[in-house]
Amino acid sequence: MRIEELLKQLPVTVAGDYFDPAVTVAGGYVSDLLSHVMGQAKAGNVWVTMQGHQNIAAVASLVGIAVIIIAGGIQPDTETLQKADQERIVILTTKLTAYEVVGRLYQLGIC
C-alpha cells in the first residue's frame, strides 16, 4: 500500500522532513525490542513502535524498513528525525496505541 493511502486511512502525522507519497509498505512488524526487529522484521515492512530515540532510524535503515509509526502519542527526538531524514525513512506519529495501530493496519490489508 502506498503511504499516501495510509495517511488518508489512519490518524497519523508526518513527523520529519522526509516524505515520499509513493513509498509503499508490504506487511508490518510491531516491537520495541530492537534485536527482535533486526531479526524478524522484513524489508518493506511498516514498523510500529513506542521508541522515539535515534537508534530506531539506524535499525530501520539496516533492515530496509521505509516507514516507522511511533504510537501512543510518543514524540520522536530531534536527532531521530534528522537521522531518519538522512536515511530516507518516513516517521509517522499517532495518538493511537500500538495495539490500535496494528489492528487498523491489518484491517487495511497490511498483513
Binding site: D32, L34, S35, H36, M38, G39, T49, Q51, N55, I56
Partner: peptide
Amino acid sequence: EMGFGAGMGLPN
C-alpha cells in the same frame, strides 16, 4: 529501556 538488551544479539 531503549529497547536493547533483549538477549537476542549473539543468537542473531
